[in-house]
């Protein structure tokens, strides 16, 4: 059996949580792996909360659902942190947006990374880059896909018209990686 990454992303709408998951999924597809992306949907989206579950695997994916067995959880705001700390399985990794989340998790059986993505994005002059910075940080540690595939996935997810934004996003991924390296 090969490696399976189970990545759970949560935050509020507008933080690019869903697209973070889609970027990983598409990059996984481009890398020739099996992938699934499952969104939350319905009224839970209306309150502004959003989450998605991504599987990237060398093998056929069984359960696409993440239920306390994530290898990686990315939590982008306090509400997500309060709700989803336990989504990570023991030994897994938790990535927190430390620009907004100032608490520390109670768990000791997981690896925790603090990434101040909003602050880094503000330094770069574009708050919309926060999710790409987080992507860079996660990928640096977890080595899920080649960084370049994330950028190739960028135009798949957002369309060819956004290709001009690739250089700034490449920079965002690098900054994210540097923040945990």
């Amino acid at each position: 059996m090969g490696v399976t990454h189970k990545i759970f992303c949560a935050g509020f709408g507008g933080q690019g949580v869903m697209s973070m998951g889609q970027l990983f999924s598409y990059a996984g597809l481009l890398a020739g792996k099996e992938v699934t992306w499952c969104p939350s949907y319905g009224p839970e989206m209306r309150g502004g909360e959003a989450n998605c579950s991504v599987n990237i695997s060398d093998d056929l994916i069984g359960s696409p659902v993440i239920k306390q067995d994530a290898t990686v959880a990315v939590l982008m705001n306090v509400a997500a942190f309060k709700k989803f700390e336990n989504q990570v399985k023991p030994g897994g990794s938790l990535y927190l947006n430390s620009s907004l989340i100032h608490e520390k998790p109670s768990r000791t059986d997981i690896n925790v990374y603090y990434v101040p993505v909003n602050d880094i994005a503000a330094e770069m002059g574009n708050t919309k880059l926060a999710n790409m910075i987080m992507l860079g940080a996660v990928n640096k540690i977890e080595k899920i896909v080649d960084d370049e595939l994330l950028l190739e996935a960028f135009t798949k997810v957002f369309g060819e018209k956004k290709a001009n934004l690739i250089p700034i996003n490449r920079e965002a991924i690098a900054k994210g990686a540097a923040s945990v390296g």
Binding site: Q22, E34, T36, W37, C38, P64, V65
Partner: peptide, 10 residues
Amino acid sequence: DGLIGQMMEP
């Protein structure tokens, strides 16, 4: 089911 409707796969 709803999950198949909402989920993305290649």
